[in-house]
Design a protein around this nucleic acid. Structure first.
Ligand SMILES: [Mn+2]
Ligand SMILES: [Mn+2]
Ligand SMILES: [Zn+2]
Ligand SMILES: [Zn+2]
Lengths: 126, 126
DNA sequence: TAAATAACAGTAACTATTACTATTAGCTTG
DNA sequence: CAAGCTAATAGTAATAGTTACTGTTATTTA
Protein backbone atom coordinates (compact mmCIF):
# COMPACT_ATOMS: atom_id res chain seq x y z
CA UNK A 1 0.00 0.00 0.00
CA UNK A 2 0.91 3.61 -0.71
CA UNK A 3 3.99 2.34 -2.55
CA UNK A 4 2.89 2.64 -6.17
CA UNK A 5 4.45 5.67 -7.82
CA UNK A 6 2.01 7.86 -9.66
CA UNK A 7 2.54 11.17 -11.33
CA UNK A 8 0.50 14.02 -9.99
CA UNK A 9 -2.69 14.81 -11.85
CA UNK A 10 -5.33 17.37 -11.07
CA UNK A 11 -8.00 14.87 -12.07
CA UNK A 12 -6.87 12.26 -9.54
CA UNK A 13 -6.55 14.76 -6.71
CA UNK A 14 -9.97 16.23 -7.45
CA UNK A 15 -11.58 12.79 -7.50
CA UNK A 16 -10.00 12.04 -4.13
CA UNK A 17 -11.22 15.32 -2.65
CA UNK A 18 -14.72 14.70 -3.96
CA UNK A 19 -14.80 11.26 -2.35
CA UNK A 20 -13.32 12.59 0.90
CA UNK A 21 -16.05 15.21 0.98
CA UNK A 22 -18.96 12.81 1.23
CA UNK A 23 -20.38 10.01 3.36
CA UNK A 24 -22.51 8.76 0.49
CA UNK A 25 -20.33 5.76 -0.43
CA UNK A 26 -20.95 6.76 -4.03
CA UNK A 27 -20.45 4.84 -7.24
CA UNK A 28 -18.28 5.90 -10.16
CA UNK A 29 -21.04 7.78 -11.92
CA UNK A 30 -21.87 9.91 -8.88
CA UNK A 31 -18.20 10.77 -8.48
CA UNK A 32 -17.99 11.54 -12.18
CA UNK A 33 -20.83 14.03 -12.02
CA UNK A 34 -19.52 15.76 -8.90
CA UNK A 35 -16.03 15.99 -10.35
CA UNK A 36 -17.37 17.41 -13.61
CA UNK A 37 -18.51 20.50 -11.75
CA UNK A 38 -14.84 21.19 -11.03
CA UNK A 39 -13.27 19.76 -14.20
CA UNK A 40 -16.09 19.96 -16.76
CA UNK A 41 -14.41 17.98 -19.52
CA UNK A 42 -13.10 15.13 -17.38
CA UNK A 43 -13.78 11.78 -18.96
CA UNK A 44 -15.64 8.92 -17.30
CA UNK A 45 -12.77 6.60 -18.19
CA UNK A 46 -10.43 8.88 -16.25
CA UNK A 47 -12.66 8.58 -13.21
CA UNK A 48 -12.65 4.79 -13.40
CA UNK A 49 -8.89 4.59 -13.98
CA UNK A 50 -8.13 6.89 -11.08
CA UNK A 51 -10.53 5.19 -8.70
CA UNK A 52 -8.74 1.93 -9.44
CA UNK A 53 -5.36 3.57 -8.88
CA UNK A 54 -6.53 5.10 -5.62
CA UNK A 55 -7.68 1.68 -4.45
CA UNK A 56 -4.35 0.23 -5.57
CA UNK A 57 -2.42 2.80 -3.57
CA UNK A 58 -4.63 2.33 -0.53
CA UNK A 59 -6.03 5.84 -0.41
CA UNK A 60 -9.61 4.66 -0.83
CA UNK A 61 -11.41 1.33 -0.56
CA UNK A 62 -13.96 -0.32 -2.74
CA UNK A 63 -17.16 -1.90 -1.48
CA UNK A 64 -18.81 -4.81 -3.31
CA UNK A 65 -16.01 -5.86 -5.54
CA UNK A 66 -17.77 -8.71 -7.27
CA UNK A 67 -20.20 -7.38 -9.85
CA UNK A 68 -21.67 -10.79 -10.61
CA UNK A 69 -24.79 -12.00 -8.85
CA UNK A 70 -24.42 -15.50 -7.45
CA UNK A 71 -27.14 -17.89 -6.37
CA UNK A 72 -27.48 -20.39 -3.56
CA UNK A 73 -30.05 -23.10 -3.01
CA UNK A 74 -29.28 -23.11 0.70
CA UNK A 75 -31.97 -20.73 1.87
CA UNK A 76 -31.45 -20.80 5.61
CA UNK A 77 -29.47 -17.84 6.80
CA UNK A 78 -25.76 -18.40 6.69
CA UNK A 79 -22.51 -16.61 6.02
CA UNK A 80 -19.84 -17.30 3.45
CA UNK A 81 -16.14 -17.92 3.32
CA UNK A 82 -14.53 -17.71 -0.10
CA UNK A 83 -11.06 -19.11 -0.72
CA UNK A 84 -8.89 -16.73 -2.72
CA UNK A 85 -6.67 -19.60 -3.76
CA UNK A 86 -9.05 -22.22 -5.12
CA UNK A 87 -12.21 -20.12 -5.41
CA UNK A 88 -14.33 -22.50 -3.32
CA UNK A 89 -17.25 -21.09 -1.38
CA UNK A 90 -17.92 -22.38 2.12
CA UNK A 91 -21.17 -22.00 4.01
CA UNK A 92 -20.34 -20.91 7.55
CA UNK A 93 -22.12 -19.72 10.66
CA UNK A 94 -20.54 -16.91 12.58
CA UNK A 95 -23.12 -14.27 13.19
CA UNK A 96 -25.88 -15.12 15.57
CA UNK A 97 -28.50 -12.94 17.15
CA UNK A 98 -26.27 -11.93 20.03
CA UNK A 99 -24.21 -9.86 17.61
CA UNK A 100 -27.34 -8.28 16.26
CA UNK A 101 -28.80 -7.64 19.69
CA UNK A 102 -25.66 -5.91 20.86
CA UNK A 103 -25.87 -3.76 17.75
CA UNK A 104 -29.50 -2.96 18.50
CA UNK A 105 -28.52 -1.70 21.94
CA UNK A 106 -25.96 0.74 20.58
CA UNK A 107 -27.94 2.04 17.60
CA UNK A 108 -31.68 2.44 17.35
CA UNK A 109 -31.84 0.94 13.89
CA UNK A 110 -34.19 -1.75 12.74
CA UNK A 111 -32.20 -4.55 11.14
CA UNK A 112 -33.89 -6.40 8.31
CA UNK A 113 -31.00 -8.39 6.95
CA UNK A 114 -27.29 -8.86 7.36
CA UNK A 115 -24.64 -10.49 5.31
CA UNK A 116 -21.10 -11.46 6.28
CA UNK A 117 -18.49 -12.52 3.83
CA UNK A 118 -15.04 -13.75 4.74
CA UNK A 119 -12.16 -14.15 2.37
CA UNK A 120 -8.93 -16.04 2.79
CA UNK A 121 -7.27 -19.38 2.23
CA UNK A 122 -9.12 -22.58 3.03
CA UNK A 123 -7.83 -25.65 4.86
CA UNK A 124 -7.37 -27.63 1.65
CA UNK A 125 -5.16 -24.97 0.11
CA UNK A 126 -3.06 -24.40 3.21
CA UNK B 1 -42.46 -16.36 0.52
CA UNK B 2 -43.62 -19.40 -1.41
CA UNK B 3 -46.91 -17.65 -2.06
CA UNK B 4 -46.46 -16.54 -5.65
CA UNK B 5 -48.35 -18.80 -8.01
CA UNK B 6 -46.27 -20.03 -10.91
CA UNK B 7 -47.15 -22.51 -13.62
CA UNK B 8 -45.02 -25.56 -13.85
CA UNK B 9 -42.21 -25.47 -16.37
CA UNK B 10 -39.53 -28.02 -17.09
CA UNK B 11 -37.03 -25.20 -17.49
CA UNK B 12 -37.63 -23.81 -14.01
CA UNK B 13 -37.52 -27.19 -12.33
CA UNK B 14 -34.32 -28.13 -14.14
CA UNK B 15 -32.67 -24.86 -13.15
CA UNK B 16 -33.63 -25.50 -9.54
CA UNK B 17 -32.27 -29.06 -9.63
CA UNK B 18 -29.03 -27.84 -11.17
CA UNK B 19 -28.58 -25.27 -8.42
CA UNK B 20 -29.52 -27.77 -5.72
CA UNK B 21 -26.91 -30.13 -7.08
CA UNK B 22 -23.92 -27.90 -6.42
CA UNK B 23 -22.09 -26.07 -3.65
CA UNK B 24 -20.45 -23.73 -6.15
CA UNK B 25 -22.66 -20.70 -5.49
CA UNK B 26 -22.69 -20.24 -9.25
CA UNK B 27 -23.66 -17.27 -11.34
CA UNK B 28 -26.32 -17.22 -14.05
CA UNK B 29 -23.94 -18.19 -16.83
CA UNK B 30 -22.68 -21.28 -15.02
CA UNK B 31 -26.25 -22.36 -14.36
CA UNK B 32 -27.12 -21.67 -17.98
CA UNK B 33 -24.35 -23.92 -19.28
CA UNK B 34 -25.17 -26.76 -16.87
CA UNK B 35 -28.85 -26.56 -17.71
CA UNK B 36 -28.12 -26.57 -21.44
CA UNK B 37 -26.77 -30.10 -21.12
CA UNK B 38 -30.28 -31.15 -20.11
CA UNK B 39 -32.32 -28.69 -22.20
CA UNK B 40 -29.97 -27.80 -25.06
CA UNK B 41 -32.04 -24.98 -26.54
CA UNK B 42 -32.90 -23.21 -23.29
CA UNK B 43 -32.43 -19.49 -23.54
CA UNK B 44 -30.24 -17.40 -21.27
CA UNK B 45 -33.17 -15.06 -20.72
CA UNK B 46 -35.18 -17.99 -19.41
CA UNK B 47 -32.45 -18.77 -16.92
CA UNK B 48 -32.40 -15.21 -15.64
CA UNK B 49 -36.17 -14.96 -15.46
CA UNK B 50 -36.51 -18.21 -13.57
CA UNK B 51 -33.69 -17.43 -11.18
CA UNK B 52 -35.49 -14.21 -10.30
CA UNK B 53 -38.77 -16.08 -9.84
CA UNK B 54 -37.11 -18.68 -7.66
CA UNK B 55 -35.68 -15.92 -5.49
CA UNK B 56 -39.11 -14.28 -5.39
CA UNK B 57 -40.75 -17.47 -4.22
CA UNK B 58 -38.04 -18.12 -1.65
CA UNK B 59 -36.73 -21.34 -3.12
CA UNK B 60 -33.24 -19.95 -3.66
CA UNK B 61 -31.35 -16.91 -2.46
CA UNK B 62 -29.14 -14.43 -4.23
CA UNK B 63 -25.75 -13.33 -3.01
CA UNK B 64 -24.32 -9.89 -3.81
CA UNK B 65 -27.41 -8.19 -5.09
CA UNK B 66 -25.87 -4.84 -5.84
CA UNK B 67 -23.99 -4.95 -9.12
CA UNK B 68 -22.51 -1.49 -8.69
CA UNK B 69 -19.12 -0.93 -7.13
CA UNK B 70 -19.11 1.75 -4.47
CA UNK B 71 -16.18 3.64 -3.04
CA UNK B 72 -15.25 4.90 0.39
CA UNK B 73 -12.52 7.27 1.47
CA UNK B 74 -12.67 5.87 5.00
CA UNK B 75 -9.91 3.29 4.71
CA UNK B 76 -9.80 1.95 8.25
CA UNK B 77 -11.65 -1.31 8.54
CA UNK B 78 -15.32 -0.87 9.27
CA UNK B 79 -18.70 -2.39 8.52
CA UNK B 80 -21.73 -0.85 6.91
CA UNK B 81 -25.38 -0.35 7.62
CA UNK B 82 -27.55 0.72 4.70
CA UNK B 83 -31.02 2.15 5.22
CA UNK B 84 -33.55 0.64 2.84
CA UNK B 85 -35.82 3.61 3.34
CA UNK B 86 -33.59 6.63 2.72
CA UNK B 87 -30.59 4.92 1.15
CA UNK B 88 -28.08 6.37 3.61
CA UNK B 89 -24.95 4.40 4.37
CA UNK B 90 -23.67 4.29 7.94
CA UNK B 91 -20.18 3.31 8.97
CA UNK B 92 -20.45 0.96 11.91
CA UNK B 93 -18.20 -1.27 14.00
CA UNK B 94 -19.53 -4.65 14.92
CA UNK B 95 -16.98 -7.22 14.06
CA UNK B 96 -13.81 -7.25 16.06
CA UNK B 97 -11.04 -9.76 16.22
CA UNK B 98 -12.77 -11.87 18.88
CA UNK B 99 -15.29 -12.93 16.25
CA UNK B 100 -12.49 -13.80 13.88
CA UNK B 101 -10.50 -15.64 16.52
CA UNK B 102 -13.45 -17.76 17.47
CA UNK B 103 -13.86 -18.58 13.81
CA UNK B 104 -10.19 -19.49 13.53
CA UNK B 105 -10.60 -21.98 16.35
CA UNK B 106 -13.45 -23.81 14.64
CA UNK B 107 -12.05 -23.82 11.11
CA UNK B 108 -8.42 -23.99 10.11
CA UNK B 109 -8.78 -21.29 7.49
CA UNK B 110 -6.57 -18.26 7.09
CA UNK B 111 -8.72 -15.16 7.03
CA UNK B 112 -7.45 -12.32 4.88
CA UNK B 113 -10.46 -10.05 4.86
CA UNK B 114 -14.03 -9.88 6.00
CA UNK B 115 -16.95 -7.70 5.17
CA UNK B 116 -20.21 -7.28 7.01
CA UNK B 117 -23.16 -5.45 5.64
CA UNK B 118 -26.38 -4.77 7.51
CA UNK B 119 -29.58 -3.59 5.96
CA UNK B 120 -32.63 -2.10 7.58
CA UNK B 121 -34.25 1.15 8.61
CA UNK B 122 -32.20 3.85 10.27
CA UNK B 123 -33.05 5.96 13.32
CA UNK B 124 -33.96 8.98 11.23
CA UNK B 125 -36.48 7.03 9.16
CA UNK B 126 -38.08 5.29 12.11
C1' DT C 1 -61.43 -29.36 -26.25
C1' DA C 2 -61.01 -24.53 -26.22
C1' DA C 3 -59.92 -20.18 -24.26
C1' DA C 4 -56.79 -17.55 -21.41
C1' DT C 5 -52.34 -16.39 -20.50
C1' DA C 6 -47.73 -17.78 -18.23
C1' DA C 7 -43.61 -19.12 -20.00
C1' DC C 8 -40.76 -19.78 -23.75
C1' DA C 9 -36.70 -18.98 -27.45
C1' DG C 10 -34.49 -15.69 -29.75
C1' DT C 11 -32.91 -11.26 -30.02
C1' DA C 12 -32.37 -6.34 -29.01
C1' DA C 13 -31.37 -2.94 -25.61
C1' DC C 14 -29.30 -1.29 -21.53
C1' DT C 15 -25.80 -0.33 -17.79
C1' DA C 16 -21.51 -0.57 -15.62
C1' DT C 17 -17.00 -1.17 -16.61
C1' DT C 18 -12.75 -1.79 -19.32
C1' DA C 19 -9.86 -1.22 -23.49
C1' DC C 20 -8.02 1.48 -27.18
C1' DT C 21 -5.85 5.60 -29.48
C1' DA C 22 -4.12 9.84 -30.50
C1' DT C 23 -2.92 13.92 -27.74
C1' DT C 24 -1.40 16.41 -23.50
C1' DA C 25 1.29 17.24 -19.56
C1' DG C 26 4.28 15.89 -15.37
C1' DC C 27 8.81 14.58 -14.35
C1' DT C 28 13.87 13.76 -15.16
C1' DT C 29 18.27 14.76 -17.00
C1' DG C 30 21.64 17.38 -19.55
C1' DC D 1 15.76 25.84 -18.72
C1' DA D 2 14.72 23.06 -22.78
C1' DA D 3 14.23 18.18 -24.69
C1' DG D 4 12.76 13.83 -24.35
C1' DC D 5 10.37 10.16 -22.02
C1' DT D 6 6.14 8.33 -21.02
C1' DA D 7 2.11 8.50 -17.54
C1' DA D 8 -2.20 10.37 -17.81
C1' DT D 9 -5.81 12.27 -20.45
C1' DA D 10 -10.27 12.93 -23.40
C1' DG D 11 -12.99 10.71 -26.33
C1' DT D 12 -14.74 6.71 -28.06
C1' DA D 13 -15.31 1.72 -28.94
C1' DA D 14 -15.84 -2.70 -26.96
C1' DT D 15 -17.20 -6.01 -23.46
C1' DA D 16 -19.93 -8.42 -19.81
C1' DG D 17 -23.82 -9.09 -17.22
C1' DT D 18 -28.45 -8.38 -17.11
C1' DT D 19 -33.11 -6.93 -18.50
C1' DA D 20 -36.73 -5.96 -21.95
C1' DC D 21 -39.32 -7.07 -26.02
C1' DT D 22 -41.90 -10.03 -29.42
C1' DG D 23 -44.05 -13.54 -31.64
C1' DT D 24 -44.77 -18.55 -30.54
C1' DT D 25 -45.61 -22.58 -27.38
C1' DA D 26 -47.41 -24.98 -23.51
C1' DT D 27 -49.82 -25.22 -18.98
C1' DT D 28 -53.86 -24.57 -16.52
C1' DT D 29 -58.98 -24.05 -15.97
C1' DA D 30 -63.59 -24.75 -17.26
MN1 LIG E 1 -24.16 -20.59 0.77
MN1 LIG F 1 -17.81 3.33 4.99
ZN1 LIG G 1 -8.98 -23.22 -1.18
ZN1 LIG H 1 -32.97 6.06 6.69
Amino acid sequence: MESIKHRYSRQRETILQVLRGTLEHPNADWIYNKTRRIIPNISLGTVYRNLSQLVESGRIIRIKDDAVIRYDANIKHHDHFRCTSCGRWYDIEILDNTVIESFNKKHKFHIEAFNLELEGVCEICL
